[in-house]
Nucleic acid binder design. Structure first.
Length: 417
RNA sequence: GCGGGUGUAGCUCAGGGGUUAGAGCGCCUCACUGUGGCUGAGGAGGCCGUGGGUUCGAGACCCAUCAUCCGCCCCA
């Protein structure tokens, strides 16, 4: 009880660890079907990149960044999300020359200095996809579809996509002005700091939980009335593609995403099982990000998936993958057979059978109880009598049957079951 | 960053100033000396989160601190 984990981290049980690895494998398998290649960790987990991530790509208050001074008094900020670092790696290593299309995936921890609560940690993990180099609506739809297929494969029930388009600069400019007009009376009473924040990105008002704001915005026309013609065309096309792919989606004009590098398509995936704990993932198109980070003028669309939240939903509905039980438990009938049991364990493991054995030659009752607890199907019992006869008693713990099997044939016998 | 709840056995929790801190589940042993699950009996396991304070006496009350959970904020 004296050990206390660092704030905002989780105690991870062995079974949780297995679920995590299983989800990771599900993600890798699924996205590889669509041609996404994984960026390995060392490629983009560079401290300097973290540092720049904080200032350049986000105007979100820095108190949510995980910042500290290192031993050289440099200000270090741990990366708060995966997209910008992945895009930096892409620029740095020229992974997407103009004229080509590149599909990247990554699995990475991210860090946020927030008050931890359920479903929100200081070191959460993110699965991410970046589809770079295409401005086609099919790219938007592909990223959304892959994301949904992943959640389906992971066992997330009742999922649906919330879809919106926030248009291009002119559209957002016009809409922002409209929002500020509608909320002028509210803003007048607000502190200077708040006004400065909102003026920077008035779209954030749309998903505000403040009732006064929501009342004022009741008469606000939807953003679709500010769309330019090509935005509308893309949005229609994306919807058609999603329908064809049988991806369940709803239009959600209130979804604007927090970062200002998004353009046009934005989406989230929700599950009705998650309740108020927000979305499982967030994504969309960001056609200006690569240029802003110093790369070519490349269009891009991507998604970041919250690993812990996904696991929470899967856990909630009891669709956890179970750790596979061992195949055999070796029971030493009498201390004299203990060494021979070890030899048999080596033999079974050489035959690729997952084999357990008690560490001490305890009573058979205790050993069999261990076997039962471990969930194994077979107990292989070896004592002096069996050694003399050159056999092993193999007990089927499920059926309660017991078979006498020649020692030399045990591996084969077990493998054919 | 703001407000609130909770820290007692491996787990879930009871005990709300007064002997030696409890229950259920789990674990171990025995009944059954070479056969699991069921039953019964017995047993092990506690810096009562940590530090300070009040008191004759603190697991309990007060302060601080750490952890954790729930709102808010925020959500890449």
């Amino acid at each position: 009880m004296r050990f206390q984990a660092p704030r905002g981290t989780q105690d991870v049980l062995p079974s949780d660890s297995y679920k995590w690895l299983h989800l990771e494998a599900t993600f890798r398998d699924l996205v590889s079907l669509y041609g996404y290649e994984e960026i390995r960790t060392p490629t983009f987990e560079d401290t300097e990149l973290f540092t720049r991530t904080a200032g350049e790509t986000s105007d979100i208050v820095t108190k949510q960044m995980y910042s500290f001074l290192d031993k050289g008094d440099r200000s270090i900020t741990l990366k708060p999300e995966g997209t910008a670092p992945a895009i930096r790696a892409l620029i740095q290593h020229n992974l997407c020359p103009p004229g080509t299309v590149t599909r990247l995936s990554y699995i990475t921890p991210v860090f946020r200095y927030e008050r931890p609560q359920k479903g929100r940690f200081r070191e959460p993990h993110q699965f991410g996809l970046e589809l770079v180099g295409s401005s086609a609506a099919t790219a938007d739809a592909e990223v959304i579809e892959v994301t949904v297929r992943f959640f389906e494969a992971a066992g997330v029930p009742d999922l649906f996509v919330l879809l919106n388009s926030i248009g291009r600069e002119a559209c957002r400019q016009g809409y922002s002005e409209a929002i500020l007009r509608f909320t002028a009376s509210f803003m007048a009473d607000q502190p200077e700091e708040f006004r400065a924040k909102v003026n920077k990105n008035p779209l954030r008002f749309l998903d505000s939980k403040d009732e006064a704001i929501q009342v004022l915005l009741k008469e606000l026309p939807p953003i679709s009335e500010f769309w330019e013609e090509d935005t509308r065309a893309r949005f229609d096309r994306v919807q058609k593609l999603l329908t064809a792919a049988e991806v369940p989606y709803r239009l959600a004009p209130e979804i604007v995403r927090g970062l200002d590098y998004y353009t046009e398509t934005v989406f989230e995936v929700h599950s009705s099982y998650l309740g108020s704990q927000s979305a499982l993932c967030g994504g969309g198109r960001y056609d200006n990000l690569i240029k802003e980070l110093g790369g070519s003028d490349l269009p891009s669309v991507g998604v970041g998936i919250g690993v812990e939240r996904t696991l929470m939903v899967v856990e909630e509905v009891g669709k956890n993958p179970q750790v596979p039980a061992p195949d055999v438990f070796i029971v030493a009938a009498g201390a004299e057979a203990f060494e021979a049991c070890h030899a048999m364990a080596r033999e079974l493991r050489n035959g690729r059978l997952k084999t357990l054995m008690d560490l001490e030659p305890r009573s058979m009752k205790a050993q069999l109880r261990q076997a039962d607890k471990a969930g194994v199907r077979f107990a292989a019992i070896l004592g002096e009598d069996e050694m003399a006869k050159g056999v092993v008693q193999v007990r089927d713990l499920l059926k309660g049957e017991q078979h006498e099997v020649p020692s030399v044939g045990v591996v084969d016998w077990l493998k054919t079951r």
